[in-house]
């Protein structure tokens, strides 16, 4: 299990959503830019890595109760998407790393925990 607090102290993320509950935690990570794959695979214990910033990602995160979405390659969604995420209690982070390195770093971090 990794808490958001722990995560953001160990890797350089920018937190996009206000009112973040840093005690929220996740157990595994799923990386995909294909919404149908994410729909099949993310769950309440998953952090989801994607470059997709379209509002539809929130629909999926919300249905599957995925607590954290991490945008790679420094992708940042529109303000309207960020506000909607805040309403839905989904935390949005962004990282300048591409998905490969971001996954590599997170994988190592999760294995160390």
């Amino acid at each position: 299990m990794m808490t958001l607090r722990n995560l953001i102290t160990k890797l350089p993320f920018q937190v996009l959503t206000n009112k973040c509950n840093f005690d929220v935690s996740f157990q595994n990570v799923y990386a995909s830019d294909l919404l149908s794959n994410a729909l099949a695979s993310v769950n309440p214990e998953t952090a989801w890595i994607t470059v997709q910033v379209h509002q539809n990602i929130l629909g999926i995160a919300s249905i599957k109760q995925c607590p954290v979405v991490i945008f790679s390659e420094g992708a940042v969604p529109d303000d309207s998407v960020i506000s909607l995420a805040e309403e839905k209690d989904i935390f949005l982070l962004t990282s300048s790393y591409p998905t490969f390195e971001l996954s590599g770093l997170l994988y190592r971090l999760l294995k160390e925990e």
Binding site: Y30, E73, P98, T99, F100, R108
Partner: peptide, 22 residues
């Protein structure tokens, strides 16, 4: 494996990401 695990294992094995700029 899923993408996350493939990336994790290869990164651990020393494969690097591409150099890039925004």
């Amino acid at each position: 494996h899923i993408m996350f695990v493939v990336c994790g294992l290869l990164y651990k094995a020393g494969i690097q990401g591409v150099s890039w700029e925004m």
